[in-house]
Structure formats: structure tokens, C-alpha cells
Measured scan of single mutants.
Amino acid sequence: MASQGTKRSYEQMETDGERQNATEIRASVGKMIDGIGRFYIQMCTELKLSDYEGRLIQNSLTIERMVLSAFDERRNKYLEEHPSAGKDPKKTGGPIYKRVDRKWMRELVLYDKEEIRRIWRQANNGDDATAGLTHMMIWHSNLNDTTYQRTRALVRTGMDPRMCSLMQGSTLPRRSGAAGAAVKGVGTMVMELIRMIKRGINDRNFWRGENGRKTRSAYERMCNILKGKFQTAAQRAMMDQVRESRNPGNAEIEDLIFLARSALILRGSVAHKSCLPACVYGPAVASGYDFEKEGYSLVGIDPFKLLQNSQVYSLIRPNENPAHKSQLVWMACNSAAFEDLRVLSFIRGTKVSPRGKLSTRGVQIASNENMDAMESSTLELRSRYWAIRTRSGGNTNQQRASAGQISVQPAFSVQRNLPFDKPTIMAAFTGNTEGRTSDMRAEIIRMMEGAKPEEMSFQGRGVFELSDERAANPIVPSFDMSNEGSYFFGDNAEEYDN
């Protein structure tokens, strides 16, 4: 993207840094990872977990959730003011799984939030270390993106479920800051804005008074975040219109849905970061690795190297396929839920299948599930090659597409044709070009129609051997075009429920 120079890199967003050079960025990201790792080690000690239990991804998720809940100030305040039966607002906890007599047992633990905050700050040299908290939120978000298709949420806001490739980060909490905003897809931002506008339509006082002023500035800020994701002048001009509207209503909703559809071809720039579970960072720190000293990046080879040398386990339900569970977590670790499966298959070195073909449910185990038949197995999170994460949407291309997802959002900077089903997408653009945004709409449609099938995206960008740390010898991959490109292809993934 041309304006790259004016933006802070995501590592800076990730670490609240002012302008830093590459070495400083690597050190501050490393410091953040160190903090998460030290916190995780301490929690495993508190909970008396064995090494194996500490490497269980379900335990990692519970521990991450506990610290996120302990620092969720708004919710904590709300819980104190609106006490609900049987919930102690000062405590947080969740299921911890232990191996007892050759069987997995679930144990519900409860801790004072104050105590968890103390352990977290102690692991982070006394700081609140917001960057580390956001990092864990993005890992949870990436896992949700890989596990669930947001059909219901899309339909509720009037969008087409086939636009799911635009929904990265749709389950990120509001408090995820600049680093969170960077990884949100165009569809996620559109959905947040539509929800806001709908509230304004239904509630006369939404934009009024002292609160209304705050609401208005939040609305304009979200519009600017979305505008910054678009790469064409016409899309940005249309966002200006939406932002400046005196009284946002149905016309703005129409414009936003139009823009979301246009992003299936004229893709937005959305950041991709490899955020790993805390149970990967903990053992690495415990083994003596100093992330701050060595430096770390979320968008280069580092996460690949770390996963190459990590042992992570997962509980497996009786009829689940461990290899499929591994694929789910591998995609989440690489922030690749909406990437082209052919690119992923090449990088991973084994075939990556669409969601609907995987015999696996989510990673988390519900409290009512029976533990008797639970097994555990090693997650295979290694890769054959590594590639640089991208934040450009890439230019655009036609490809055989599917009944489910009709476009992709690249996660890796790797040369390819970008699949999208042009006739299906263009069919949504018939007729409606009147109104105050008509010239911009016409211009956007013209650009979409001009998108050429034979153009290559990320020209000359390749993948790298894991021994090639400096990215000196790019390998331009070859793809098996007979395979499906979309992950949520004609899909039956479970729906995400809060």
C-alpha cells in the first residue's frame, strides 16, 4: 500500500510504541512475548500442572481467558453494579484439565481477579502490559475465525453469508486497541457500523446529549479505520460520505453494504499476525530463551520457528480426527482463516481442507461434555516452508469459486491468482447506482469489472525454506488448481455463540 510509510507498523501498534527502528520493534515485541511466557509459567505453578498438562491447549485457553477477564475493567465495573446470582464479580476462573488415573478430569478453578492481575503485572515488570493482553485477544479471535462461520451475524446486519472472507476479527472485544483495529476485516468494521446506525434509528437519543457526542466521535473513528483499509480513492470518498452524514440511517447502511461487497474484489488491507497460545510461549521462556534479547516478529519467520520446536497437546472428542484438529489450530496460529487453501497447503506441506470436510468441533470443551471418553493427542503445528504475512489485500483475480465463501483475504505475501467468483459478486451490483453516491458507485463498479483474471497478485513473492531466515531465496510455489480455494466452501461450520 502506498501510504505504508505514514502508518505505524503493526509491531508498533502491538507494543504501543512511538516510531521505533526494526531492532527496537523486535525487542519490544519480544518483551511482550516474554511477559506472556513468564505469566503462563507462574500460572502453571499456581495450578500445580504437570509439564504435559501445561502444554494442553484447553488449559492455555482457560488461563488466557482468566487474565483477560481480570483486566476487563468495563465488564468488571458492570458486574459490580449489576450483581447477578451466583456470579462473584471479583473472581474469575474456568475449567482446568488434569490427568488422573490414566483419565482426563475437569476441575473448575476460581481465583481472585486481583490475584491474577498481581501475577500478570509481576510477570511483566510491574506494568499492565496491555500489548500482551491484546495479543491474547487476537489469538482467540484468530481461533474463532478458523472455527466458526459468522453466517447468522452477517444475515442479521443485512449482509450476504458468502462475504465471510471479510469477517476477520469479528469476535475481537471493543477494547483491543490499535492492534485489534489493524486485524479487523472490512466486513467486521461494516458490521460494527451498521449495528451502531441501527441503534440510532431505533433509539432517538442515541446521537443526542453528552453521551451522543461520545457516540458520534466513536462512529467517526470507526469510519476512519474502515476508510484506511480501502485502497481505492472511490471507496475512500464513499467512506467520507458515510462519516460526514448528519443523521446516519438506511442510506448509510446501503452504502456500507455496497462497500463491503466491493471489497470482495477491490480488497481492503487487513493486517495478519501470528499470535500463538500462551502454552507455546511459556515452555520456550522456561527453556531459557530470551525473546527480548533475541527479538521477535509476528509477521516473519519467528512464529514458524517457534511452532517448529513446540509440543502442544489437545483434548480430542471420541469421533474427532486429531489431524483435522491440528489443521484448525495451525490455521489459527498463522492467522489464515480466509487465505486461499492452495497457498496454505503449499506452505504447510500437507493438504489443507475446507472447514466442512474437517471432523472436528471447536477447541474448547463445553462444561456439560462427558470427560470419560476424552483422549488427548499432539497437535501437528509444523510447516514445510515459511512466508511473510501481508497486510495488503493483493490485486484481484477471477477463479472458480464456491457456493460458500466467494473470495479470499490473503494472509501471506505469496504470488498467486486470487480466487473470487466474479459473476456471483457482480450480480449483486445491478441497477442500484442512484442517489448521492452514484458517481462513486459507478466508478467502483467500473474498477471491479476491469479486474483481470490473468493478473498475478504479489508478483514474484515466494515462500522460503525454514533454514532461509533472511528470506534470501524465494520459492514461487505451484498450486494444484483442481483443489478448492475457499475454506468455508459450501460450508456447515458451527455458528459462533458468545
Rank of each mutant, 00 (worst) to 15 (best):
N59H: 12
R204G: 01
M167V: 06
A263S: 13
N202F: 12
K77Q: 11
Q311K: 13
A251F: 11
M456E: 00
K273P: 08
S377L: 13
E455T: 14
E494T: 09
Y111S: 13
S287M: 09
S486M: 09
D491T: 02
E254F: 14
R117Y: 11
E443N: 09
A337T: 10
D72K: 07
K98H: 13
V100Q: 12
S478D: 00
T390L: 02
A403V: 06
L466H: 15
I116F: 06
P410L: 01
T147F: 09
N142M: 12
I253D: 09
L341W: 11
L418A: 01
N247L: 01
G212E: 03
G17A: 12
D145Y: 06
M481Q: 10
G30F: 13
L306Q: 15
K113V: 03
N395G: 09
F206L: 11
M447E: 06
S170Y: 01
L256H: 03
G37A: 10
K87H: 06
P283Y: 04
E64I: 13
I265P: 14
D101K: 06
L264Q: 14
F346S: 10
N205H: 04
Q398L: 15
Y10S: 03
P453G: 14
V352G: 09
Q364T: 15
A451P: 00
A411L: 07
L379V: 13
L143A: 05
E469H: 08
S84H: 01
I388S: 07
R65K: 14
F458A: 00
P283R: 07
G431V: 10
D302Q: 14
R38H: 12
R436L: 06
Q415M: 10
S486L: 14
D145A: 11
G282T: 08
D290A: 07
K229S: 07
S353C: 03
G356V: 05
M163N: 00
E292M: 12
M167K: 02
K48L: 11
A22W: 02
Q58L: 06
H140G: 10
L166T: 06
A123G: 15
K227C: 09
F71I: 01
S345P: 11
W120C: 09
K273D: 02
G17V: 02
N142V: 06
Q398G: 00
R204W: 10
S310D: 02
C333M: 15
A27W: 01
R216D: 05
L418Q: 09
Q311D: 01
T188F: 03
R26V: 05
L49S: 05
E81V: 14
A332H: 09
L381E: 07
P474L: 02
K227I: 11
A85F: 06
A428Q: 10
Y219D: 11
M456N: 12
E434F: 00
S345Q: 10
L328K: 08
M66P: 04
M196S: 13
A284V: 07
K91H: 05
T147H: 11
P303H: 01
A366L: 07
A428S: 12
M105V: 09
S345E: 12
W139E: 07
R267W: 01
Q231A: 08
A129H: 05
W330C: 08
R384L: 04
L266K: 15
A387R: 03
G228I: 06
R117E: 06
D340A: 05
R26E: 07
K325W: 12
A251H: 05
A286L: 11
R355N: 10
L328F: 07
I119V: 15
L276N: 12
E292N: 03
L259F: 04
S438V: 14
F420M: 12
E11G: 08
I225E: 11
V280M: 15
M196Y: 02
E369A: 04
T62Q: 03
A278I: 14
E18H: 13
S482K: 07
G435H: 03
D439R: 04
D160Y: 07
F71M: 01
A337C: 14
R236V: 08
S482Y: 02
V67A: 14
S467H: 13
T350M: 04
V299D: 05
T134E: 08
T232I: 12
F458R: 00
R152K: 14
T15V: 08
G93Q: 13
S482T: 02
N483T: 03
R118F: 09
V183N: 02
R391C: 04
V343G: 05
L466W: 15
G212S: 07
G462F: 09
G228N: 14
I119R: 03
Q168K: 08
A178E: 04
R400W: 07
E339W: 10
M481W: 15
F429Q: 01
A336K: 00
S478V: 03
L193T: 13
R470M: 09
M191N: 07
M426Y: 00
Y111M: 15
R389M: 02
R461T: 12
V299R: 07
R267G: 06
S69P: 11
E115A: 10
M371W: 03
S383E: 00
G126M: 13
M1S: 05
W386L: 12
G93E: 10
I316D: 05
S50G: 15
I365A: 09
K184N: 04
N309G: 14
L328R: 08
R461S: 05
E81W: 01
E455S: 12
G35F: 09
T430E: 00
S392M: 05
M163A: 05
A332F: 06
R121K: 12
M238Q: 14
E494Q: 12
A403C: 13
Y111C: 01
F258H: 09
G185L: 07
L306R: 15
L315C: 13
T62L: 04
L381N: 14
A218V: 13
R65G: 07
F39A: 15
V183R: 04
F489S: 06
N321V: 10
N334V: 08
F230N: 05
K103E: 08
E24A: 07
G362S: 04
N247C: 15
D72W: 14
A472N: 11
Q409N: 06
W139Y: 13
P303R: 05
M105N: 13
V242E: 10
R38D: 11
P410R: 01
T350P: 02
N202H: 15
L68R: 05
R391W: 11
D127M: 11
F230I: 02
F420V: 14
T92S: 08
W139R: 07
E107V: 10
T15E: 13
E454F: 03
E64D: 13
Q4V: 10
V299C: 05
A387Q: 06
G462C: 08
S262N: 11
V270Y: 06
G37E: 15
R174N: 13
N321Q: 10
S9I: 07
E210Q: 08
I445Q: 10
S274F: 06
M105W: 07
A27N: 10
A181T: 04
F39M: 11
S438H: 15
R195G: 01
K184V: 08
A337I: 03
K452I: 13
D491Y: 13
K90W: 04
C223Y: 12
F291A: 11
M136C: 14
E369D: 11
Q409F: 00
L154S: 03
T62K: 01
M196I: 13
A70D: 14
R446C: 07
Q241W: 06
T188N: 07
L381K: 02
A332I: 08
G187W: 07
V285Y: 11
V280A: 07
A237S: 15
I116N: 12
L172A: 15
A323W: 00
R342T: 06
T215R: 06
Q459C: 00
M163H: 02
L133M: 13
S335F: 05
I119P: 05
E14N: 13
M371T: 07
M481V: 02
S377F: 12
G209M: 07
L172S: 08
E434M: 08
E465C: 00
N334I: 08
Y52A: 15
Y10H: 14
R174L: 03
V352K: 14
D480V: 14
F39I: 04
I225A: 02
Q415C: 01
E81M: 09
I138K: 10
E11I: 10
K325M: 10
V242T: 09
L166C: 01
A472F: 13
M222I: 10
R446A: 12
K113Y: 06
R391N: 05
V312I: 15
Q459T: 12
V183D: 07
M32E: 02
G404P: 04
P83I: 07
V408G: 01
V363N: 04
I96Y: 14
L307G: 08
E469R: 06
P283S: 12
M456Y: 10
R204S: 01
M13P: 00
V463P: 00
L108K: 12
G169Q: 05
M222D: 02
K357G: 07
N319I: 06
G228Y: 04
F230T: 14
P477E: 00
R342E: 07
S486D: 03
H82M: 14
E484A: 10
L358N: 09
G180H: 02
Y289D: 08
N397F: 14
V155P: 02
R384E: 04
H272F: 05
D88S: 13
H272T: 03
